[in-house]
Design a protein around this nucleic acid. Structure first.
Lengths: 196, 196
DNA sequence: CGTCTATTTGAATGTACTCAAAAGCGGTGG
DNA sequence: CCACCGCTTTTGAGTACATTCAAATAGACG
């Protein structure tokens, strides 16, 4: 079980350029973790201590409401970060569950190592600012879509935006992401077929 | 029409400490702007070039969907920032309208001045990082509330969280923020009264 | 092969919306 | 000062979108 940093280095290189020493220092701060299908990386009530970058596999982030219903907030395929950003930022107990939908390998950077990294290699400040900004942009986007689109429009958007996920994910998970019941998604798909 | 920086300085002081020179430099980068009731600070399609800090009055940020319906994303009473964060970050045309609900006075910091400020007084990096993080946290919160609570729960939360706004805002605006019609909000309030 | 979970289908229900009309409220001009 | 106008809020009846519950079917996995 050894670390393969190729993907995350490629990801970092899209935003900032590193010398080989900086790169090695960065790698030295990372931890490798395997999460089997159905296992959790994080549960409600825990303080989120790491950002997790997905190397292989697939994760989901979701909440459970007071009636016990799950609501998927995001999926994380390879090349994406996941965690409870709110809890990571505030270091207070969070509300998110992060669970593997397949056997998954993640690379983790602890919050304390992130701070060390930013101190020693200040250009990482820029990198993490960009990450936070991207999260913010996509969170806004998700919110405006949720309030202004019908279930059908949200589904069609999802299919266009994440064609891979539509193939691989159980319908149940997609329905939860869209904010509808699996039954209704099933009916919607049938009526979309008839329309064509 | 002169700038009164007391409120914004108090706000900044909650996160970072400034010397008097730093404070004066900060103030020199700010612009003052008056927005009359119903006037716009920003419209869909424009690139957001400033963060706006509300000194007096009240603003709303909203989108208009493809069917012409408005969806209020946030309100900004005195002491709050408002703008199209996504557009401000990406410097691409945004989707938000920002409109004054009352005669309003804002203090603006342009994105370019923000960069100047962070270069000359690096501790402002921290300040703006905190602002961005706070936006992210509240955007996540808004999203989880939207997907996991009923309209009634969202209304009661809103009343608890923003008792001032419940007093002053037209119901129509509150309904739009909650993601329901004004008619339905009216009926909901009546049924809440009967319950007590 | 059998069990467990996911998906589909149908009928009944509920939540929130549309449309229309009436009532309330605030500002403005005569 | 009050009468009128425009906008917001309330109310009601009918409707639509999405849910719940139950049952049948299909898939996945040991």
């Amino acid at each position: 079980m050894t670390l393969d940093p190729a993907l995350i280095l490629h990801h970092v290189a899209m935003h900032i350029s590193l010398s080989s020493e900086e790169r090695d220092f960065f790698i030295s701060l990372l931890q490798y973790k395997s999460v089997n299908r159905r296992q959790f990386l994080l549960k409600e009530g825990e303080v989120c201590k790491h950002s997790s970058f997905v190397n292989q596999g697939l994760l989901r982030g979701y909440t459970i409401d007071t009636n016990g219903f799950e609501h998927v907030l995001n999926f994380a395929p390879p090349g994406w970060w996941i965690g409870d950003m709110a809890s990571l930022i505030t270091q207070k107990p969070g509300v998110l569950y992060v669970q593997a939908l397949e056997d998954t390998k993640v690379i983790q950077l602890s919050k304390s190592n992130q701070e060390v990294l930013c101190t020693r290699v200040p250009k990482f400040e820029r990198f993490f600012r960009i990450l936070t900004e991207n999260s913010l942009v996509s969170s806004y986007r998700r919110l405006t879509d949720t309030v202004s689109l019908t279930a059908e429009e949200r589904y069609l958007n999802f299919c266009r935006k994440y064609p891979m996920l539509v193939q691989t994910l159980p319908q149940k998970q997609i329905a939860s992401y869209l904010g509808i019941t699996p039954e209704f998604l099933s009916k919607m798909k049938r009526s979309l077929l008839k329309k064509k």
